[in-house]
Design a protein around this nucleic acid. Structure first.
Lengths: 208, 208, 208, 208
DNA sequence: AGGTAACCGAGACGGTACGTCACGTCTTTAC
DNA sequence: GTAAAGACGTGACGTACCGTCTCGGTTACCT
C-alpha cells in the first residue's frame, strides 16, 4: 500500500503536462507547510520521536492531508530533506578522475554535516522496518552520485591512476561507508577533522 | 534513568562474589526466557516492530521483570545478540599485521551475516533516538576489535607494510564502514561476493 | 442552516408554477439516483451506519449535490421513505368511528412492517440529536393520521361509543405508542401476531 | 466482541465471592469518574453527540480504561443511568391489581421525566445500530417491571377487574408505549399533564 | 449567438472521533 | 525482594466521515 501511494504520488508529480485532473487541486501551501514543519522538527528531534500528528499540528494541517500524499513519515522527512537548496548532485568536471572523486566526496561531506546528517541517519534508521524507504533514498539521493563514482573509478583505472585489480562496487563502499558510519555514529556526526582528511586518504586507497 | 538501570544491571552482574542480597534472588529461568523470546522474534521481525509487550508475552513473563533489568528493548536485543556463541573477539596471532587484519575482518563478516546483521542494524537504528544504546554496542562488541585494529595498523606502519601518512581512525572507518553500510542496506545484508572480496581489497587500500 | 436548506428545498419543490430560475436546473436523474441509493442502503444497514459519503458513492454523485438539497442524511432517508408508493394517508370512510380507526391502524401497521419500520426507527433515532427531523417526520407522515384520529375519537365520543372522560391526546398515544414501541424494539419489528390483535384490542380500550 | 466484553464485565461483577484475581485490581475511582462524567455530559448533550473521548477527557481517564470495561458508549450511559438512586423497581403491594399498576406507572413516569428521559431516549436511539444495547436496557431496567405488570394483569383478569379477552403482551405495550413515545418525542419529554392523566386513563382501558 | 448563472462530478481541505496498540508505571497476590 | 498478572494515564497510529471548498465542465435561460 505504501508502494501504491508512492506510485500515485510519482504519477501526480509527473503528469503536469496533461490536462488537470478532476476535483480540487492539491494545495501547494499545505504541501509547503508540511515540509517546513517537518524540517523545523527535524532540527532538534530525531525522526523516530517525531509523529505524523506532531507534523500535522505544527503545519496547521489535517493528518489526512499528510497520509493522502505520503505513505509514512520517512517519506515526508526525505522530501523535506531533498527539497533543500544545495543538495543537487553536481557532476565534477576536472582534469583527473582522482580530483573529481575528491570534489564529489568533499561536496557530499558538506551536504551531510549538521542537521542533514541527523535527518539522513533518521531515515536510514526508519528504513530498517520498511525497505521502500531505503530504496527511495538511494533512488533520489545516492544513485547519481554512485553512478558518477562508478564511471570515475573505471576512468581512473583505464588511465592507470587506480589499481586495476579492484572491484568498483567495493571501492564505492569504501568511499561512502565511512561517511555513513560517522553520520550514524550519533553525537555530532562528521567532525571537522574527518571532513578534511577523509577525501585525500580515501583517494590514496584507490591509487595503483 | 536508562543509565541508572544499566549501571544497576552491570553491578548485579558483577557482584556475584559478594554475599547474596536479601529477598528472592533474580530468576534465571525468567532471564533466559526473555532473551530466548527476543532472539526468536528477531529472526523474522525488525527490532523497530518488536515491542516489550510482545517479548513479555512470548516469554511468559511480566513486563515489569523486563523493565527491572533492562532500560529498553535495544539493550535486551543487544544482550540476546551478544550472548550467542561464536561472537567473542579473538585476537588473531599471525606473522604479519596485514594477515591479522584480514582474519579479523573475515571473522567479523562471518559474525555479521544473516540474522545477526539484521539485529545489529536494528540496534543501530534504535540508537538514533538514544545514544546510550550505541555506546553500549561499541563498548560490548566493537571496542576490542577497534583497539586491536588500531594496534595492528600502527604495527603495520612501523614495519613498513602500510602507508605512513595515514590516519588510523579513518583507516578503521574504511575497514568497518563498508561492512556496516552493507548490514544496514537491507534485503540480505552482506553478500557472498562481498564477503570474499572485501578483506583483501581493504588490505590493498592500506598498503604503502 | 439546516432549516434554511429545508426551506429552500420546500420552495424549490413548490414554485414550479412560477417562471424557471436562471442557470442550470436541478438534475432529476441525480435526485433519483440519490434516493434510490439511499433506499437500497437502508435495506440492509441501519441509518446510523449510513454516511452521506456512502450514499454519494453508491449514487455516483458528488457530495455537494446532496448537501445542496438536503440538510442531513435523515432528511434524505425521510424523502426516500415517503416517496414510496402506498404510503399516502387514506381517510377511511366507514359507518362507525370505531371501524374507521381500526382501518387506519391496520393500514399504518401495514406501512410500518418490514424495511419501512427499520427506516422510521432510524429516523427517530437520528432525531434524538436534531429536533427538526422529528418535526419533519410528524409533518409529512404522522400529522394527517393524528388529525384524522383526533376527529374520529371525538366523533366516537359524541356518538356514545367511546368513553367520554377520556383525553384524546392520550388516547392517540395509546393507539400509536405500542406501534412505535414495536418498531423501535429491533429484531423484526411488528410481529404477525401483534398486527392481527392490536387494532381490535386498542379499540376495546376506547369503548365506553 | 461487544458480547465478549459484556460477558467479561458481568463475570467480574459477579465473582466477588471468590478470591481476588491476579494483577492490579480495577480502579474504583476511575469507574466512578467515568460514570460521573457521563452523567454530567448527558445533562446537556444528546448521547449521539457524546464521544468516548469526551467522556475520557472529562473523567481524567484514558480511553482504554473505558474500552476495557464497556463495549460502547451506550453501555456506559446505561450504567450511569441505572446507578442513580431511586431507579430500583419496587413491587407495589396494594389491595387491588389496578391500584398496583397505577402506582407502578406513576413510579415509572417519575423515573423517566427530565434528564433520565433524555438518557433513555439516547440509549434507544443508539440501540438502532446495536441490538445488544437494547437487550441490556430491557434486562437491567424493564424486565422486572414488565414481569410485574404481567402478573398484575393476570391477577386483575382472574379477579374480574380487567377484560378477559385481552392479550397481556399487547396490554403491556399499551401501558408502556405511550410513555416511551413521549420520551422519544423530544423537546421536554413527559409533560405534567400527561404524567397526571395517563395512569388513570390507561387503567380505564384495561377495565372489563 | 453569447453570456451568465446555477448546476454537476470529483476530490482535496482542516477537523473530530474512532478503536487499537504500546508505552512505562502502578498495585495486587504469591513465592 | 522478585515474579506474574494486569489495570492505569498517555499518546500515536491509520481510517472514516464530517461539512466546506475549489476545480473543470455542463445546461439552460436571458439578453
Amino acid at each position: 500500500m505504501a508502494t501504491e501511494k508512492a506510485i500515485r504520488h510519482a504519477i501526480v508529480e509527473q503528469d503536469n503536462d496533461e490536462r488537470a485532473a478532476a476535483g480540487r487541486p492539491r494545495s501547494e501551501p499545505a504541501r509547503k507547510a508540511i515540509l517546513d514543519a517537518t524540517r523545523k522538527l527535524l532540527m532538534h528531534t530525531p525522526l523516530l520521536q517525531i509523529s505524523i500528528e506532531s507534523i500535522a499540528r505544527k503545519a496547521g494541517v489535517g493528518k489526512t492531508t499528510i497520509y493522502r500524499w505520503w505513505p509514512n513519515k520517512s517519506s515526508v522527512a526525505m522530501e523535506a530533506f531533498l527539497e533543500q537548496p544545495g543538495l543537487q548532485h553536481i557532476n565534477p568536471t576536472t582534469a583527473t578522475a582522482a580530483e573529481a572523486i575528491e570534489r564529489l566526496l568533499e561536496n557530499l561531506i558538506r551536504q551531510l554535516r549538521g542537521h542533514n546528517g541527523r535527518i539522513v541517519a533518521g531515515i536510514i534508521a526508519e528504513s530498517q522496518s520498511d525497505e521502500t524507504v531505503l530504496d527511495l533514498l538511494y533512488e533520489k539521493f545516492l544513485k547519481e552520485r554512485v553512478e558518477t563514482l562508478y564511471s570515475l573509478i573505471e576512468r581512473g583505472q583505464k588511465e592507470g591512476d587506480f589499481a586495476i585489480n579492484m572491484d568498483a562496487d567495493i571501492a564505492i563502499d569504501m568511499l561512502l561507508g565511512p561517511l555513513f558510519l560517522r553520520v550514524l555514529s550519533g553525537e555530532h556526526g562528521i567532525s571537522q577533522d574527518f571532513a578534511e582528511k577523509f577525501p585525500k586518504q580515501a583517494l590514496m586507497a584507490l591509487k595503483a
